Amino acid sequence: MAHKILIVDDEPNIVMSLEFLLKKEGFEIAVAGDGEEALAQVAAFAPDLLLLDVMMPKKSGFEVCEVLRTDPGRTGLLILMLSAKGRDTEIAKGLAIGADAYMTKPFSTKELVAKVKDLLDVA
């Protein structure tokens, strides 16, 4: 069974390229365009991994991560935060609130796929 990944980003070009890339790798994909939609999609789609942008409308990626990390039913959910904010303080904050990994934009798609496979423990 394919791993399920929820892509949460408000930039359509990033969403399209990630969706294409990850579907090609055999993952099942769902998409959300803001923080509130992300939480609704997590409940409906039950992803294994969240690719979570930090700067978004309605709720930031940090807020979404905090909400999910306080939900005892979501302990197995992996969160990979994506952000143009690559300062050490931003990365430290993302990891401190419970993200499993943090990548800064722009990122290499090859590196992203490798990180996703590593987090999901797939060859």
Rank of each mutant, 00 (worst) to 15 (best):
A2Q: 07
I5E: 01
D9G: 03
D10P: 02
N13T: 04
I14P: 04
L18D: 08
E19W: 00
L21M: 11
L22I: 02
K23T: 11
G26D: 08
F27M: 02
E28C: 05
I29N: 07
D34E: 04
E36S: 04
E37W: 02
A40N: 12
A40V: 06
A40H: 11
L49S: 04
L49P: 02
L49M: 02
L52G: 01
D53V: 01
V54S: 08
K58W: 04
C65P: 12
V67E: 15
T70H: 13
D71A: 11
D71L: 03
G73Y: 08
R74Y: 04
R74I: 01
I79Y: 04
L80Y: 06
M81N: 08
S83W: 00
K85L: 15
R87P: 00
T89H: 13
A92Y: 13
L95T: 13
A96K: 10
G98L: 07
D100S: 11
D100I: 00
A101N: 13
Y102W: 10
Y102F: 07
M103D: 08
M103S: 10
T104N: 13
K105H: 12
P106D: 11
F107A: 07
A114D: 11
K117N: 06
L119K: 02
L119I: 03
L120C: 04
V122R: 14
V122E: 09
